[in-house]
Simulated assay, not measured.
Amino acid sequence: MKAARVITEKLGSLRVRTALVLGSGLGELVHAVDGAVRIPYREIPGFPEGGVSGHSGELVAGMLYGVPVLILSGRVHYYERGDADAMRPVLEALRQVGIERLILTNAAGSLRSNVSPASVMLIEDHINWSGLNPLIGESSDARFVSMTEAYDAKLRSVLDQAANEIGVPLAKGVYMWFSGPSFETPAEIRMAQMLGADAVGMSTVPEVILARFFGMRVAACSVITNLGAGMTGAELSHQETKDVAPLGGKRLSMIIKKAFEIGFDQA
């Protein structure tokens, strides 16, 4: 509750129901926020500070394309501390301040040759390959969260409509979570393809589980930064992620802008 009180005090009269979590290289979206209120994570009780380049670690609130919004610029990953529930204090605080809809974004590797770097993929479902879960240790029966509709159909529909209206290609697929921080091997990529995954990454799934636990509706998109290991013969690097993510991030920002214009916050 301490974190929620700090955020509420900073927001003043602003009433926000929609939040975004920005992944690697996607922080430019915060510059589109009008009347921005910025709160570094270190000033919010219980908020973990990440140590990944490309993640700024601040909460930004204001008006985004005419809609009140709260943006988390940066996240903490499981691989940083070995805590699958590292983002629990953050998402719990968001729910306490009134967030109902959550858009998650990430940088991911594509497993489909026709979904190339700098493109955007709407996540329709996920595979938790890590075997980890942020609700391990939760004692209440609320831990048995249904994940059948983890990615809200109405919210996905608005994002799909927005992409169609502005003519930005939007792939759709299944995201597989690997724990990281090392990239996947070519053999793991081939396995993921056989299991039905369309993209791989090192985040998002714990946040989806936590958001559903707290009763929030979720939509998520991946900005594709590379093709999976072994698909091109090239070595993978975090620098590539940082270099390519802003290119796809511009497309995703356009989709989000249009989604807000046509009523994402009313879906």
Rank of each mutant, 00 (worst) to 15 (best):
I127C: 03
A32K: 13
L70Y: 10
G82C: 09
E184P: 08
G233V: 01
T241F: 02
A36M: 04
S146H: 11
D243V: 08
G248E: 03
I166C: 10
L122I: 06
L70F: 09
A229Q: 00
D83H: 13
N164R: 14
T204K: 08
A197H: 01
T241G: 04
K10M: 07
K242P: 04
S222E: 00
F144I: 13
Y175M: 08
A259Y: 10
V205S: 13
I209L: 04
L104P: 09
A229W: 00
W129I: 14
L132Q: 14
T105Y: 08
W129E: 04
P181Y: 06
S179E: 15
Q239K: 13
H77M: 09
F264W: 13
E100K: 15
D160L: 12
T232H: 02
K257Q: 13
G27M: 01
G57N: 08
D265I: 06
L122M: 05
H126A: 00
G98V: 10
V52E: 04
S119C: 00
A219H: 06
I136S: 14
M216T: 03
K258E: 15
S110W: 10
G66R: 02
S116I: 11
S146E: 06
R212Y: 07
L94K: 01
G263S: 11
A234S: 08
A162T: 11
H77D: 04
V16R: 09
A219W: 01
T185Q: 03
A171Q: 11
V52G: 09
P186G: 06
M176I: 15
T105H: 08
S130Y: 01
H126K: 00
L227C: 03
D83M: 07
A197D: 04
A19I: 01
L104G: 00
E80R: 00
R38C: 06
G131L: 10
C221Q: 00
V115S: 03
M176L: 15
Y78I: 02
L247R: 14
A220W: 01
G27A: 09
V208K: 01
T225C: 00
L72H: 11
E207G: 09
M202R: 09
R101H: 11
G173M: 09
G230W: 04
